Amino acid sequence: MNGSAKPIKHKGKNRIAVYFEKNTDLIARIKKIDGALWSATLVAWHLPDTAENRERFKIPPMTHSLPSPEGIAQIEKFKQHLRSKRYSQSTIATYSEALKSFLVFFREKPIADITNEDVIVYNNDYILKNNLSASYQNQIVNAIKLFFQTIRETKIEIDKIHRPKRSKLLPNVLSKEEVKLILNAHSNIKHRTMLSLIYSCGLRRSELINLKPNDIDSKRGIVIIRQSKGKKDRITPLSPKILEMLREYYKGYKPRTWLFEGQNENTRYDERSLSNVLKQALTKSNISKPVSLHWLRHSFATHLLESGTDLRYIQELLGHNSSKTTEIYTHVSTKSLQQIKSPFDDL
């Protein structure tokens, strides 16, 4: 598999992060590896850190290189700084791992002596040399910028640290017919309701899992999404059809703490189990595309745009900070394209 891999600590577990440019064939291949999961926070796939997976991705046996004692102390201070600013635990783990990689590279150099030129050297001699993705490089830049804002004595000019030119990738979108097949594939009301709610409200996986029964406001006809990405609350319309489905689900399962609970009472539904629910639906509906849960969110936005919903409203519904993030859906909407007649038809 083209790309690169490295050992990481993710949610307290030893994992192997695999970085490669977006490619449907590679995604399909990595999905077949037992325990493979996608992390939007890491912007990478990650697998269990086993001897088999280390051999598969040509990672040396367990030899974890460490930064200098100064670097280790500074990473701990950096974590405390991020905690005080109330960054999420997953973001703290991601940024501290990225910073660790950078400080390991310069472990023989005092942190106060690191310059912008060193960042360029790191990009060339580590990021590019190991074929790491632009997304991972961007993650490193975020960590370096945040870190050096907390350092008093530094030669780094933060504003002059450049970001990599990112690939302009189009979001993956399903047709309405494909979405219908997926949502109707399960006879289990709980599984059907979870997938339907993701599509009907444009939810992220974590947003669905963190919903509580009181977040469904049937009188106002809204779903309240609390403290999602960027620690923001937002609301999204509640479809009458989804409300009926939720009432049927509620009668059967009677959730208490979380809207969708796991096998043990008062525990959230497991992210991996939710991904498996989708995989089963794809198998039952004979869809061979490497569909992820996020495809349902992309499809929600695109279908809204094609039905004439204003882009500003879609931005609010998705919880995007910038309209530029939402504008990408204009590139995959087929509404305008279908009105264009190919000159081939006149031949």
Rank of each mutant, 00 (worst) to 15 (best):
E244I: 01
Y253S: 00
F300S: 08
K229H: 06
L304H: 10
R247A: 01
R272W: 09
S288H: 14
S288I: 15
F300K: 13
P237Y: 11
T236A: 15
S285P: 01
K231M: 09
F300G: 09
K289P: 05
T302E: 01
Y269M: 08
S292F: 03
R256M: 08
K284Q: 15
L293V: 13
G230M: 09
W295V: 11
E306V: 03
A281K: 09
A281L: 06
K289S: 13
T302Q: 04
R272D: 09
T257A: 15
L246W: 08
Y249F: 14
S273F: 00
K229L: 11
G252S: 04
T257R: 15
S239A: 06
N276A: 07
L278G: 03
S273K: 00
N286Y: 06
Y249Q: 04
P240D: 00
S275A: 12
E265R: 07
L246I: 15
E244L: 10
K251N: 12
Y313I: 06
T257D: 12
G308R: 14
Y269V: 02
P290S: 11
D270Y: 05
F260M: 05
S307F: 08
W258F: 15
E244N: 02
P240W: 00
I235C: 11
T257S: 14
D310R: 08
R247K: 15
T236Q: 12
S285M: 11
Q280R: 15
L243N: 00
I235G: 08
R247E: 02
E248D: 01
G262E: 10
L304E: 05
N264Q: 15
N266G: 06
V291D: 11
G230K: 02
L274M: 14
S299P: 03
E244V: 02
I242P: 00
G262Y: 06
F300Q: 02
K284E: 04
D233T: 12
G262A: 10
Y313Q: 11
G230F: 06
R247T: 01
E265P: 00
E248N: 05
R297W: 07
P255N: 11
M245A: 04
S307P: 09
S273P: 01
L311Q: 07
A301N: 03
Y250A: 08
D270N: 15
T283W: 02
R312S: 14
E248V: 03
T309L: 14
S307H: 12
I235S: 12
W258Y: 15
L278E: 00
K254M: 08
V277F: 13
E244A: 00
T302C: 10
H303R: 12
E248K: 14
D233G: 13
R268I: 02
T267D: 06
R234E: 06
K232E: 13
E271R: 13
N286D: 14
K232I: 10
S299E: 03
R247M: 05
Y253L: 02
F300W: 12
Q263A: 13
F300A: 07
D270K: 05
T302F: 05
S273G: 08
G230Y: 07
R256W: 06
T257F: 09
H294G: 09
G308H: 12
K254Y: 03
